[in-house]
Design a protein around this nucleic acid. Structure first.
Length: 691
DNA sequence: AGCACGCCGACT
DNA sequence: GTCGGCGTGCTC
């Protein structure tokens, strides 16, 4: 920690010596830790003389709120000599800890993220600052020198980024630019016997370059599987003490310890999941995101900002470089590339996978057919199995995740709860996927039939069929339940659900993407780009020149994989969204609540927003949602984002206050005050509404 | 979330 | 005239 800002000796003297009405007072602006929209603003508190040394921006405090007994927690975000509040200021009750955990930079970031997504700053700060752990904090304070020396860039060979032309990415990072990088679709050995996706090497190289320049790099990945690969790649080129992990799988103490480490001013590499993008850093040089279109990068808690939205804001505020790395390209990124806001840097030399499309299944080869494999792919797999592992990607885990009546084909429902019936393994009794009830004596509701038919096949069933088709070959299953990170170079068939594919030593000798048709059948605005992402990430696990066979997918999607021209596909797809006025051509916000409130909210929005010729707002709905509520979708151009967010937010605040009602039960005579839970909910940029 | 304040009906 | 139930709104 370097000194204590915001405090002068003169300030201390005048505050303690003068008791007059016009005495100089030190006032702290405090952000309250509360999800209530009406408290989402700064409150002024007087800093009592005894706390002047500790009451600096960023520290946690306790403050009185409304009446003497009530204490709220919050953070000091700034300190000044006067207040714009006309009423009487209360004193800060207590400085909980003198560690300034909410740095001014992160506070500004949280405020803007909240404003952009119609949420409260304290909801964002909750993601950015982990819960306090007293023991950890005490140890950190004891170990931290008041003026820790800033160790400058380590001497030695300057690291480089390979695969994109000499010095190209290095320069972009040094200039603090925003760049999109197509990941190199192969695997790499980062230590003897340790194999990772080649993307992880690129990120590790970018981090090493940033570190060598004396700056900090934040690397955000979707989940721990990616993080393991990235950490392995980092370990090969960066000293362990320079690497700080911040992720959801850590225990609270571990997370807090690592978070506190980030408060030090020396440069480091911060690696973690979506919350890492909020990590404090005095000298941020790079924010890099792997596979930024992965939905795991979207925060499920309100206000639900995604890593890349946060990163764009932080890039702007900090001047650090932004690097988005992925195998495929989604329409969101394509839009920003076409705008010129993000620059694409191409591979050099170009490394392309070898993708083989096949016709629909249904060939004559009996064992292959039972395993849903066209005979052409069958021979590719058999040949590949002579030299190493082969990956088979399927859509669903389990054995038979969907069952139907063999007679009338109606979906098999649980007699107890109407949930879907499924088979756990070949000889299992059908069980409900929702309530788990066993249905030994199932009988079809519509035709009285008693025989079940397997509609969809999961990893388990596929593994069984492959075992029959390739006798003597070892079969390994990796799915949500049994999740493997790596497999050896020994010949084996690895059956995996999308996203759970292990990395094979040396790469897979062949890859078979089986359930393309089924994956495309999902009803969603983004199916095509989602599928391309899943397939591309699997294909990238192939050994050099090893064939990747995609079954049952043709047309533009197959062509995109074969030519590996993801930008062309994204361009076409984005054109379609523009004509339809769907995201990401426009932004959306869903507004849900009681019908009258939603109506008033939309009226206020359309009244206040200054739609012009180039920027428009329109509303889809409202339509009935669950529990008597209605939901409307507001579509608006990016230029109107601030106005729309401000208007919707003010409606949320207005409807959050008041609205308590006292109800007297006519039966018992008891009085209950309650707040009707469904007032008004707003969520921005959620594309799940088109299911 | 709590809690004070104020408005309106019933009361010594 | 004033007590108090109960909605309304504010919180530095």
């Amino acid at each position: 920690m370097t000194g204590v800002p915001g405090l002068t000796a003169a300030g201390v003297a005048s505050a303690t010596e003068n008791v007059d009405a016009d005495a100089a007072v030190t006032v702290a602006q405090v952000m309250l830790e509360s999800p209530l929209p009406q408290l989402d603003r700064l409150f002024d508190y007087r800093v009592p003389p005894s706390m002047l040394a500790e009451a600096v921006p960023g520290v946690r405090v306790k403050v009185p709120l409304r009446s003497a007994g009530r204490i709220a927690r919050g953070y000091i975000v700034s300190v000044s000599e006067n207040s714009s509040y006309s009423g009487n200021l209360s004193d800060i009750e207590e400085v909980i800890s003198r560690v300034p955990v909410l740095t001014p930079e992160v506070w500004a970031l949280a405020r803007r993220v909240a404003d952009r997504s119609g949420g409260g700053a304290s909801d964002v700060v909750r993601l950015a600052v982990p819960p306090r752990q007293v023991r950890i904090e005490r140890a950190w304070l004891a170990a931290t020198e008041p003026d820790a020396p800033v160790s400058e860039a380590a001497a030695g060979a300057s690291p480089a980024i390979s695969g994109y032309g000499t010095g190209v990415v290095e320069q972009a990072i040094a200039e603090g630019r925003r760049i999109a990088l197509p990941a190199i679709p192969t695997v790499a050995e980062v230590a003897p016997g340790v194999w990772v996706g080649r993307w992880a090497v690129t990120l590790a190289e970018a981090a090493a370059v940033t570190l060598a320049a004396g700056r900090t790099a934040i690397l955000a990945v979707p989940d721990y599987r990616d993080q393991e690969q990235l950490v392995a790649a980092l370990a090969a080129r960066i000293p362990a003490e320079k690497i700080t992990a911040l992720d959801a799988r850590q225990s609270n103490p571990d997370r807090y310890r690592n978070f506190l480490a980030c408060l030090h001013s020396e440069a480091r590499v911060i690696v973690g999941n979506r919350s890492a993008v909020y990590a404090p850093s005095a000298r941020l040089g790079l924010i890099a995101i792997w596979d930024d279109a992965d939905p795991l990068h979207i925060e499920p808690l309100t206000p639900g900002a995604s890593t890349r939205d946060v990163a764009l804001i932080r890039q702007e505020q900090s001047g650090a470089a932004l690097l988005l790395l992925s195998h495929s390209r989604d329409t969101w990124l394509q839009r920003l590339v076409e705008l010129g806001y993000i620059t694409e840097i191409r591979q050099s030399p170009t490394v392309l996978p070898h993708v083989v499309p096949t016709a629909q299944q249904g060939d004559q080869d009996a064992p292959a057919q039972s395993a849903r494999i066209p005979s052409s792919a069958f021979s590719i797999v058999r040949t590949a199995l002579e030299s190493g592992p082969v990956l088979v990607q399927v859509a669903r885990p389990g054995y038979a995740p969907v069952l139907a009546c063999a007679c009338c084909r109606a979906a098999a429902k649980c007699p107890a709860c109407e949930g879907p019936l499924k088979l756990a393994h070949a000889n299992a009794t059908p069980a409900c996927g929702w309530c788990g009830a066993i249905s030994a004596a199932w009988r079809c509701r519509s035709c009285e039939g008693q025989r079940l038919r397997l509609v969809s096949l999961g990893t388990g069933r596929t593994a069984e069929e492959l075992g029959r088709a390739f006798p003597g070959i070892r079969i390994i299953v990796s799915d949500g339940e049994r999740n493997l990170l790596t497999v050896s170079a020994a010949p084996a068939l690895i059956v995996s659900t999308r996203g759970a594919e292990p990395v094979a030593a040396g790469g897979y000798r062949a890859i078979l993407l089986l359930d393309g048709e089924r994956m495309l059948a999902r009803e969603s605005l983004t199916v095509a780009e989602d599928c391309l992402r899943w397939w591309s990430n699997a294909i990238a696990l192939a050994a050099p020149r090893a064939p990747a066979v995609i079954v049952g997918v043709g047309g533009v999607l197959a062509r995109t994989l074969v030519t590996w021209q993801h930008d062309l596909f994204a361009h076409e797809e984005l054109q379609g969204r523009r004509t339809l006025r769907f995201p990401p051509a426009v932004r959306v916000a869903s507004v849900k609540g009681r019908a009258d409130i939603v109506d008033a909210t939309l009226a206020a929005l359309l009244d206040s927003a200054t739609a012009g010729e180039s920027a428009t707002i329109d509303v889809l709905g409202p339509v009935e949602a669950e529990d008597g509520l209605v939901r409307a979708i507001v579509r608006f151009d990016y230029a109107l984002g601030n106005e729309v967010a401000r208007s919707l937010r003010s409606s949320v605040v207005k409807n959050a206050t008041g609205r308590t009602r006292t109800q007297t039960s006519s039966i018992t005579g008891t009085k209950t005050t309650y707040r009707p839970p469904p007032t008004l909910r707003v969520r921005f940029d959620d594309t799940e509404f088109l299911e």
